[in-house]
């Protein structure tokens, strides 16, 4: 059970592909920093994309608001920094994709 953080946009295809290759159905993903831009494209991906494997997808509220990402995407849970810390403790490990 891994918590993955990703801080890059979907234009970083290699990075997103690597995450898709290793992610398990028990894992969750948090979109942080420039990763929050991916919120706008989550419905466009193939079944093998990490967004269709992850148990939950979270997005850091502060980073989304800063970049003009509307807080209304149904696939995502919006979290603050305290909840980020809590999630990192609830998972066996945290892996950063950057």
């Amino acid at each position: 059970m891994i918590l993955h953080t990703i801080n890059k946009t979907s234009a970083h295809e290699g990075l997103n592909q690597q995450l898709s290759d290793v992610i398990d159905t028990n894992d969750s993903v948090i979109l942080i920093e420039n990763g929050v831009y991916q919120a706008q494209q989550l419905s466009q991906h193939s079944s093998k994309h990490w967004s269709n494997t992850a148990k939950h997808i979270y997005i850091l509220k502060e980073d989304a608001l800063a970049r003009g990402i509307a807080l209304d995407t149904s696939k995502l849970s919006y979290i603050n920094y305290a909840e980020f810390v809590e999630l990192s403790l609830l998972h066996e490990k945290v892996t950063s994709w950057y």
Partner: peptide, 19 residues
Amino acid sequence: TGDACYQLMSNQFPEHIDQ
């Protein structure tokens, strides 16, 4: 072009990340 288009989005509130 590319990801630079994100610079042009409306409703940005970067004070949340001190920018």
